[in-house]
Design a protein around this nucleic acid. Structure first.
Lengths: 257, 257
DNA sequence: TGCGCGGACTTGTCATAACAAGTTATTCGA
DNA sequence: TCGAATAACTTGTTATGACAAGTCCGCGCA
C-alpha cells in the first residue's frame, strides 16, 4: 500500500524491511536537527499518516531508536529526542582497533607470537573444545601513537585461526576479520575485569615499571549462534588508557524493589 | 479471552502485562531446565496454543528473553535456549547492590559521609550545574560478606540528595531509591574504567596494603530524559572483585552475512 | 476562585489476519 | 539412485482494529 510513498522511496534500498527504512529516516532527521534534542517527535499516529504505514511498523522503528538511545518515550505524553549524546552505542561489542580508529587514533599491532598448539584445560573449557584440540594462540602488543598500551593474548579454534591473515593482524581487528573474512557473525561477549599489578612479562611488554597498575580484562566472544569463538586476556596500562562505555538501564519489570 | 488459562494464573500478579507474565514463566522454565540449554523451544504458534495468547504477545515475550540473552532465534528453524549462561544481563545499568543481591550475596553499606556542599568545578560540569550550586556528597564503603570491596563517592544535585533516606542508604541502592522513591527513571550511564594504585585513603577504607591494585570506575548516570543525576567514583579492590558484564555486537546494518 | 471531572490527546497492550522468507524432509521424476 | 520440485514447517514483517492507561487542558459547578 505504501509502494508509491515518496518519503520512503528516498531511502537507499527498497528490499530491506519497512521499519528498518523508517528507523534510518527518523535517525537522519534527528541527527540533522529536524527533530531537535529534547523536542517532541510527531506522535505515533501522525507518523503513521505521514509515511503511510501501520502503527506496528512505526512502533518497531521507534523501539529501535529507543534502544539506540536516540529517543525516549513517556506514556501519555509523547516521544522525545534524547539530549546530544556524548558517546553513542559504545555498549556495543567492538574491537579495540575499531573503537580507536573511530576516534581517529593510529593503531599498530606488534605480533609477538602466532602459532597453533594443543588447548590446555582452561582454553578448551572456554572455547567448548576438548583438552588437546588444536587452537591458535596469538600474542600481540598494541601500540597507540607508537606507545604500547596493551598486551593481548588470544586463543581461537585452529579451524578459525588458520583463516586469519598474519599480515593483516598488524592493522586489522580480529573481530573484523572474523566477520568479514571468515563469515562468522559475532553475537556477544562475556567480560570480566579486574585490576592487577604488572609482573615481569607485562613490564617488558608495556614498558612500565614493576608494580604499576594494570587493568586485566578477560573476554570470551561468541558468534551470533552462541558458539564461543574467541577467548582473550587483555592487559591495559592503567596510566595510559581508560575503558569507556555506556550501559542502558534494563526495562524495569514492575516494581520489585 | 485468556482469563481462565491456568498456566498464566500461576503467576504472582495478574495486573502486569500479559507478555511480561509470559516472559517470566518462560524464564523460569529455562532456568529450571524444562527447556534445556541448546534445546529447541516450542514454536511461536505452539506457544500461542499452549497459553491461549496471540502471536504478537508470544513474540514480545520471546523478544525480551532474546534481549536478555536467554534464547536466540534462527529464521526458518526455530527458537533455541542459549548455553548455560554464566552471567545474565549484566549489560544493564544496575547498582552494585542490585547485582550482588541477585547473586545471593549480602551487602552492607557503611556510610562514612553524607552532607550537602557547594559543587566544585568538576562535579558541577558533570552534573550540568553551576559551580557552587548545592550538591549532596555521599561516601560509602561497601561490605560484601563483611569484607570491604569498594569505596564509593557519589554526588547528586542537592534537590535529589535531600530526598534520599540516610537509613536506607545502608541497605538499598541509590539507583533503586532514585527510581522508586524519587520518581526519577534512569536511562543510561557513561562509564570510564582504569586501574590505579591504592593511596593512603584507599588503604584504610578497603583494608588493603599500600600499592595494591584498585579498579577505578567513573560513572555518570543519566535519567531517562538525558539529564545527568548521579556522578560517582568507585574504587574496587582488584583482588576481591571482578566487574563482569556482557556486551552485544551492534546490529549490523544490511550486509549482515 | 478553586476544585473536580471529563474529553482529547498520548503511548502501552493485545487479538486476528495475511504473506514473505528461510529451513527441512518428503516425494516425484529422470 | 540421484536430484530437483514441493509441501510443511519455522521465524520475520506488516496491516487493521480495539481497548487500557497515563497526561493535560479546559469547562462547569460549588
Amino acid at each position: 500500500m505504501s509502494k508509491s510513498n515518496p518519503a520512503l522511496m528516498l531511502l537507499p534500498d527498497a528490499p530491506s524491511p519497512l521499519y528498518a527504512r523508517l528507523t534510518e529516516l527518523l535517525r537522519l532527521r534527528i541527527l540533522d536537527g529536524t527533530y531537535p534534542p529534547h523536542g517532541r517527535m510527531p506522535s505515533e499516529s501522525e507518523l503513521c499518516a505521514m509515511f503511510g504505514v501501520s502503527r506496528i511498523t512505526v512502533r518497531q522503528a521507534l523501539g529501535d531508536l529507543q534502544k539506540a538511545g536516540l529517543i525516549f518515550r513517556i506514556h501519555g505524553k509523547g516521544t522525545f529526542v534524547s539530549r546530544p549524546k556524548a558517546f553513542q552505542n559504545v555498549t556495543a561489542l567492538e574491537g579495540f582497533g575499531e573503537a580507536m580508529s573511530r576516534m581517529g587514533y593510529e593503531i599498530i599491532n606488534r605480533v609477538d607470537r602466532l602459532h597453533d598448539l594443543p588447548a590446555d584445560a582452561r582454553v578448551a573449557q572456554k572455547l567448548g573444545l576438548a583438552e588437546g584440540d588444536p587452537v591458535t594462540e596469538i600474542r600481540r602488543v598494541r601500540l597507540l601513537n607508537r606507545e604500547p598500551v596493551s598486551l593481548e593474548l588470544t586463543w581461537l579454534p585452529a579451524a578459525l585461526g588458520e583463516r586469519l591473515n598474519r599480515h593483516e593482524l598488524v592493522t586489522r581487528d580480529i573481530f573484523l576479520m572474523l566477520e568479514n573474512d571468515c563469515g562468522v557473525p559475532l553475537g556477544h561477549a562475556d567480560i570480566a575485569m579486574d585490576a592487577v599489578l604488572a609482573d615481569e612479562d607485562l613490564m617488558q611488554a608495556l614498558q612500565i615499571e614493576e608494580g604499576a597498575p594494570v587493568m586485566h580484562i578477560e573476554r570470551l566472544t561468541h558468534a551470533a549462534d552462541g558458539r564461543p569463538v574467541d577467548y582473550e586476556h587483555l592487559y591495559f596500562r592503567g596510566d595510559a588508557f581508560q575503558y569507556r562505555f555506556r550501559v542502558d538501564r534494563a526495562p524495569r519489570r514492575e516494581g520489585r524493589a
